[in-house]
Design a protein around this nucleic acid. Structure first.
Lengths: 181, 181
DNA sequence: AAGCGTTGACTGAATATTCAGTCAGGACCT
DNA sequence: AGGTCCTGACTGAATATTCAGTCAACGCTT
């Protein structure tokens, strides 16, 4: 991956955050990267190839799951919903990918892989915290809850604070009090 | 609404279930309905008009919120995730709309209205059931959880039974045992 | 060092494709 | 005849894709 390819892929990621996968225009990507449209076709086979490279790039950006400590759990989850622009852009892209997965087989596998990693990370945090019961199930529920709240958040139905409040309140109810300390 | 209009609207709904709102092509709708593209423009002003009629149609299919009884709560929520084709198609469309709302202002308001009605219904069920605490917040959390799980379900990461299992298990944890009885 | 051939990166302009939307008119009714 | 429902053929705008050719840099020869 040359630096120019990298520029293009990063530009594509920004465009996706703004317009969604299906709103992605090669012309826009070229403009965003400050190169000619043709160059995209020099470096990538076609629009789909560019898309694949961009997904791989975004995928690689996510830090590897670390084993969380007890204190991390709530923080880990709340970290997905903040006023940080990069976080919000990531959430928009994620939500877009999630919805697109129903129609485009190509993105299911990477999406599933990342979801699984996220679930594992949350489950590890739950177990470190000594949460009782089926922690695997609980982890899925928590990450799904975050995704659901994120959807409300980015579609403007909940403010950042409201979404965070609901999330924090629910975690408190789901995971016995001592754990969050 | 003539029967032909109805055919078209139903065809559009099927197309949306397959391709999503943003993947909806008027040509495909016409083919699905077995009529010419031109006829769509005879019956509807434009693509957006067709879309609006289709959304209204789908909307009308959803039963009016009734005051739920205690026994209803879990059932009410689980009803969103079943092997019924119509339910699944509705979920796909809903998820698509939710993701699109980040990019298209036009659909935010109707989406928010339906979400609010759904939240109210769940909150009412919670109160009838005598659930303690902030029932408004809990209702939001539960509906958001359903949306999150639905996303996993329609993107193939969870089977119907797995999604239902996680949902049922989480409701049980969130709402004190006696309530579900 | 100066000339020469070659290559990889890149561009502008042209072309191909996709798609919503239009229009003139046909069929069928009353 | 006149209205209603309907169609096939078309258009224009937006978009993706291709292509011929430019340019700077590099190695090789003398």
């Amino acid at each position: 991956m040359t630096s120019r390819q990298d520029d293009i892929v990063r530009a594509a990621a920004r465009c996706i955050a703004r317009q969604g996968v299906r709103g992605l225009r090669v012309h826009d990507v070229a403009a965003e990267a400050g190169v000619s449209t043709s160059l995209l076709y020099y470096h990538f086979a076609d629009r789909d190839g560019l898309l694949a490279a961009t997904l791989a790039h975004v995928d690689a950006l996510v830090p590897e799951p670390r084993t969380g400590t007890a204190a991390d759990l709530t923080e880990l989850l709340l970290g997905e919903i903040t006023d940080d622009d990069a976080i919000r852009a990531g959430s928009v892209a994620w939500s877009e990918l999630r919805a697109s997965a129903a129609f485009e087989d190509a993105i299911r596998e990477p999406l599933a892989r990342r979801t699984a990693a996220w679930n594992d990370r949350i489950q590890a945090a739950l177990e470190t915290a000594g949460a009782p019961g089926d922690t695997a199930m609980l982890a899925i529920a928590l990450t799904a809850l975050v995704e659901g709240l994120t959807g409300r958040w980015i579609s403007g139905e909940l403010t950042t604070d409201e979404a965070r409040g609901v999330l924090a309140g629910t975690v408190e109810r789901l995971v016995p009090a001592g754990v969050a300390a």
